[in-house]
Structures are given as C-alpha cells and as structure tokens.
Amino acid sequence: MQELLQYIFSGLTNGAIYAVIALGFSILYGATRLINFAHGEFVMLGALGLITLWQGLKIPLAIALVLAVLGVALIGFLFERLAIRTVSRPEPIVLIIITVGASIFLRGVGMLVWGKDAHSAPAFFSFAPIDVMGAKLLAQSIWILVVVVALTFALHAFFKKTLVGKAMTAASISKKAAWLTGIPYEWMILLAFVLSTATGAVAGVIITPITMCSYDMGTLLGLKGFCSAMLGGLGSLWGALAGGIVLGVLESLGAGFLSSGYKDAIAFGLLLAILYIRPSGIFGAKDLHRF
C-alpha cells in the first residue's frame, strides 16, 4: 500500500510535467495543425533561463519566473516570424523538418550558453515532505499539480470566453472564413506560437527544483509531452492534462511493479494499444487529418 501510494505520487508529479508540455503541443496544434518538434527545447530554455536569472543573476524568484517565461515566449515569437512564416510552401512535413532543425539549433545554442554540464536549483519552498500513510508527498509536487490544473483552467477560459481566444479557435477551423469576418489569422498563428512556447517555459521552470537541467534535457521531455498530447487527443486541453497524468502514473507503476528497464516500453506499448482502438486519442475529435 505504501509503495503503491508512493508510485502514484511520483507518477502524478512526472505526469503533471508531461501535461504542461502536452498543453503546449495542443495549443499549437489546435490553432495551426502543426507539431513543433522543438517544443522540448523551449522547455530546456525555460529551465536553464530560470537557473541563470535566479541563481546566477540573483534576481528574486518571482521576477525571475516571469522573466524566464517571457523571454522564452519572445524566442517563440522570433521563431514564428523568422522561420515558420517565411516558408514558401508550408506543408506539414516541411514544417516538421524545420522544427527538427530548430530543435538541433536551439540545443547547440543551449550548449554554448550553459555549457555541457548539468545545472540544478534549490527547492522553491523548504517544507518537509508530507507523510501520507508512509508515502512521501513533496510540497513541490503539490505546487506543480496546482500550477498545471490552474493553467489548464486559464487556457480553457481563454479559448472559450475571450474574444481573442474565440478568434483563434475560429481561425483554426477555417482560415478563409475567419479572414472574411475580419480576424487577422496570421496574428492568431503568431499568438499560438507565443502561447505554446510560453507554456513550454512554464514546464521548464516548474521542473527546475525537482531535477537536473542540461542543454540536452529537452528531447526526451518533448517526446513524452507529444506522447501525452496524442494519448489525450491532439488539440484538446483536457486531453493533454489527462494524457500527461496517465502517462506519468503508468510509467511509475510500470517501473515499480514490472521492470524499470522496460518502463518506457510499457508506456509506449499502451499508447499503441490506445491508438489502435481509438485512433484519435481518449478525448480527441473523430475527424482525422492526414498530410
């Protein structure tokens, strides 16, 4: 029982991080039908950026958090303007390779700026772990879960209640129709990039106190986030949240009860099974897009 609880706690923490990353994938996919393979690198930039601002430049934590997220969003803005929008033939496969190129480029930049060694930051709060029937729940984990749920609610409200959010949804359904009603869809795409990379940075900053950060941390996190977004159904915010949590908990249970060596294989095996049974994910819409 104690073990089971501990596996679930650890799975929830990891899952929450996957969920934030998956949110970034879903926002972008919802608005542009694009998967950004450099998304994990934005997580890395957020994490290492925070460490530099907070630990290196000694900026107070709250301000450093905001600056790190804004800084990464600015890079996302530049990425859309300079790379994505200049593409002369924006087919999905072309855009995928551009984002793959961008991920290698950003990793190279990360290596130059932060070096090849890993970095770490102290915990945000120094509360002792909470004891739940022998299992330890970290204050940090609770904080991460709260951030994730709050972020999902905020994004949900943004897309459903605000004019800009509704305009983004409209632009993603039909570019032409949106344009006819006066929605500047190019701005909507730009906004989607900024929002998506900003959530990537949020994932980065909440992960810093619980693990080690290095220039090459993004690839695997991006992959897990992509996997979660798929699991929940691409484009769905709640799907991203559910997908992330499910993946995190399954990984943890797989490592605990079956084999830690095969834990990723277990997670991906389940993903395949779900895709075969429900090809559009747990919460995904029925319509399928192809290249």
């Binding site: 551009i98 190129g101 961008a102 480029f105 950003l106 990793r107 190279g108």
Partner: peptide, 14 residues
Amino acid sequence: EMIVYGLILMLVMI
C-alpha cells in the same frame, strides 16, 4: 557544429 547543422536544415526547408 550543432548550430550550423540546425540552421542548414531550416534554411533548406524554408
């Protein structure tokens, strides 16, 4: 090297 490689990939595709 990584920066140049990534840039070449992006520029060719753009």
